[in-house]
Structures are given as structure tokens and as C-alpha cells.
Design a protein around this nucleic acid. Structure first.
Lengths: 202, 202
DNA sequence: GTCTATATATTGATAGAC
DNA sequence: GTCTATCAATATATAGAC
């Protein structure tokens, strides 16, 4: 397959998304560029525009894939965590952290305000399902009103995302911090958050 | 002062730092550029290089100023919060969030790994004092070993920074979230974190 | 469907005039 | 100490050949 001379790809759109993840993992969202992705694939900088209208449309496709993969990673981690709701909730936070660091993509990309303007249906759906996953885990931790559940989710996401952001560049990037330790800390934080009001049905 | 023809400034270095804050507040660290700062000040793009060796040295000066102002903002908020240690700790988190959103600068800039290579003594000192402030507040919340205190600080910072990052771009940037609500949520989160093991001397 | 070539914009940084 | 002018990178995006 793809044995002819010149530059070919069985599935360039898929290859573009895959390579975009590589760039994001190594340099983060801010440094992401269509040109760099094209260069890595050994294709011209014009080729991506045959498949994605512009930078943002490629980015949206990457964000959609990321939302799905993140949801899958969280589900897997939670399933492996046992039955205790607070534990499952806490593990969801560390799974987020691990994914965001490893892939260079987090909620900042998946829910980026720039991408919201695109009104991409697939991305919106993937994003909604991802949020539903987290709110479901929060609901299981105790009797809560809907706003209380949402606040709990927001706190967990903020905690995990903050760790990820500061690990990539900032306070925890100095080399004095090991990711494994931060994962454990984020889990402890998640447990503390889950322990607030109503954690166990009264 | 500065009444002569042509472009003058009583204190261009200070004006560069001030204007840098404006750019950061409006566009964030990723979009920060020397050229844009110069444009805003109505000076040539060459002028800043008379006062700062390069982009990173200007950035370091901004980060230093930010570290000091942030420490001041946290101190003021904490002083206004009363005597309860857990409350003071929680308020420090929301003060961080408010500052990071308003100024466009947080621990990602102040402790940026790029700037660490500069070995700027003033920045290092300001950064250390900022961390000491937070660890002091954490220590007051209960009997803790040093690693436990550091973990508590890390959790608070991550929580607050995550909110700030996602408010600027991401989950909370959609317009459906009000900053005041997020500030309250971050404070609740801070209280939950402070309530972990040893929050009150046993 | 991919390429070459190009137009346009922005950036960081320097040399040299005033 | 500020300016004009300039260079080299790098980016997005398009037109047209193959």
C-alpha cells in the first residue's frame, strides 16, 4: 500500500491527526502549527489544506479525537479503581492529569473558545459525553444537588488541569517534581474534594 | 516631562513592563511579543532591545513584578479574611485566581522553565518569597510534616491555576461561567483541601 | 491528491544614522 | 536613547501545474 513513487499516504487526514498529537505532546498547543505537522510527515505545507479548511478545522478534529481518547482513558482508570465512588472520582482526576501531560491536550484544547466558533457537531458531542462521564462519577460520591455536583466536577478538573499546566511549564516543570508524585497528590486532592458535604449519604 | 518632539518616555523600561502586563492581560503569555508591546507604546521595535537584552529578559522583569504584585494581592486578601487559618488558606487560592485572570500572569509565567535558564536573581528571590507565603498559610492550617504542607500548597495552586487557565481558554471560557462564581468555587475547594488530615491540631 | 511557488503577515534581533 | 531599515525565520493560506 502506498508503494508508488512520490509522496503518498493511505489516509492523510488520519496521519495529520496522528502527527498533530505528536507535536502537541512535545510542544503543547501554543506551538502547534500546520506547517510543522506537514514537515514531520514529509509533505508540502499545502497538502493539509486539501483535507482541512484551515488550521482551526484540523485542530478541531484533533480535539475531537482527544476528547474520545480521554474519555476512554478515564473509563479504563476508573474501572480499574474498584467500587468506592470517592476513589473512582479521585482516580478520574489523575487519569486526566496523565493524559494531559502525555498527549499535550486537555480541556483547554477540547473546549477551546476558538473552536467553539466552529460549531463542530462531532466535537460538541464528544465534549458533552466527556463531561457527562465526570458528572456521573461526581454524582456517585454522595447526595448532591445538581449545582453541587457540577461544582465538584469543576474543582476536580481545575485541580487536575492546573497540575498538568504547571507540569508542562511552570512551578512543577523544574525537574524537581516527578509526575508519579504529582499523580498521587492529585488523587489525594480529589479524595479531599469528594469528601465535602454529602460524600456519604447521611 | 517628555515634552520634546519625537518619541520619549521618562522611563521606558518601566513603561515596557507596564505595557507588557496589558498585553498579557488581553492575550495571555503565549501571544506575548516584544513587537506588539513596542507597537502599543508607539515606539520602534528596536527600542526595547536597548533596555532588555532579548525577549526573555523583558519577560523575566515582568515575571518578577508579577510575583511581587501577586504576593501583595494574596497578603491583602488573607489579611481581610480574618483569623481562621483554613479560611485564610482558601482565600489565598481565590486571590491567586483573581490575579491570574486579571493580569494574565500566573505561576506558569513566574516559574516558567524557559526563564529558569536565565538565572535571574531578582526573579528567583521574588519566586521564593511567593512560595514561602503560601507554605506559611498551609502550615497554619494544622499539624503537618513538611512534605504534607508542600502537597497542600501544590494542591491549592493547581486548583487555582487550573481555574485561571480554563477561564482564559477552555471549559470555563464559554461565557456560561461568571468569574465571581468560580472564585467562590475555588474557595470552597481550598477549604476542602485544608480540611484534610491535621487541619485542626488533634 | 499532492506538489511547487508565491503572497502576505508577524516575529526576534541587529546595524548604523541621528 | 530612539529611530529607520533590514534580515532571517516561520506562519497561514492560495493558485495552478501535474
Amino acid at each position: 500500500m502506498a508503494g508508488k513513487r512520490g509522496y503518498h499516504h493511505g489516509d492523510l487526514p488520519a496521519a495529520l491527526i496522528r502527527t498533530s498529537f505528536e507535536v502537541l505532546a512535545e510542544q503543547g498547543p501554543a506551538a502547534f502549527s500546520v506547517a510543522q505537522v506537514a514537515r514531520r510527515l514529509g509533505i508540502s505545507t499545502a497538502s493539509p489544506y486539501r483535507h482541512f479548511r484551515d488550521r482551526d478545522h484540523l485542530f478541531a478534529a484533533v480535539a475531537t479525537a482527544a476528547a474520545r481518547e480521554l474519555a476512554e482513558a478515564v473509563r479504563a482508570a476508573v474501572d480499574a479503581a474498584g467500587a468506592d465512588p470517592a476513589e473512582r472520582f479521585a482516580v478520574a482526576g489523575s487519569a486526566y492529569l496523565r493524559f494531559a501531560v502525555g498527549r499535550g491536550v486537555g480541556f483547554d484544547v477540547i473546549y477551546a473558545s476558538d473552536l467553539a466558533a466552529l460549531r463542530d457537531e462531532e466535537l460538541a458531542t464528544a465534549g458533552r459525553e466527556l463531561m457527562d462521564l465526570f458528572t456521573g462519577l461526581a454524582d456517585d460520591t454522595g447526595e448532591r444537588t445538581k449545582p453541587e455536583s457540577l461544582e465538584l466536577v469543576a474543582n476536580l478538573i481545575a485541580l487536575a488541569h492546573g497540575y498538568a499546566a504547571l507540569y508542562r511549564n511552570g512551578l512543577f516543570a523544574s525537574g524537581r517534581y516527578r509526575l508519579e508524585d504529582l499523580l498521587a497528590q492529585a488523587e489525594n486532592g480529589g479524595r479531599a474534594l469528594a469528601a465535602t458535604r454529602g460524600a456519604r449519604p447521611r
